[in-house]
Design a protein around this nucleic acid. Sequence first.
DNA 1: AAACAACCAAACAAATTTGTTTGGTTAATA
DNA 2: TATTAACCAAACAAATTTGTTTGGTTGTTT
Lengths: 79, 79
Amino acid sequence: MDTDLYSFKINLGKRIKALREERGLTQPVLGALIDKDYQVLGRIENGRVNPSSFLVYQIASALKVTMSEIFDFSKLSDS
Amino acid sequence: MDTDLYSFKINLGKRIKALREERGLTQPVLGALIDKDYQVLGRIENGRVNPSSFLVYQIASALKVTMSEIFDFSKLSDS
DNA sequence: AAACAACCAAACAAATTTGTTTGGTTAATA
DNA sequence: TATTAACCAAACAAATTTGTTTGGTTGTTT
């Protein structure tokens, strides 16, 4: 479920981090792929921001996953 | 193609508008479903903003479509 | 030990989105 | 004609994201 903003940010961050690590990419390397500083990714992965849809779209493209894949929070091991 | 921000906003807006109209919903009605003024939707549908991922997520939920469905710009009749 | 890479997090200004109000257009209807 | 609904668009303040710099931690390597 989890439809509030706080949980959304946390889950989105976890999902992006998991997908990035599955591909063996570091934040600096993924950042270079989308032309952003690694701090931008860190902020997202740690759930501190609600990133723009375009930014998530760019991340999905760089990770070669669909948007639905990124937002499929059911794939997260519930902490 | 179309990876620049300008095209992204235009295409995202067209896609949301198309999906909303397919369901016979008005901006005020869809707005009520996500507890937003209809002007917020108008701004998005007309490509004037790059909405937050959470907002798009809420719209997708209200329209009962996946995020990939919303971001599948290939389904747009090329203007 | 020193150097390096990866990452977290805070801070700041600048840019943008968001919430809201307002005025206008168009089409349908009473 | 008058009214209503739907929509576009501009404007404004407030909130938030974004870009960037800085300092710190951890683990690895030389």
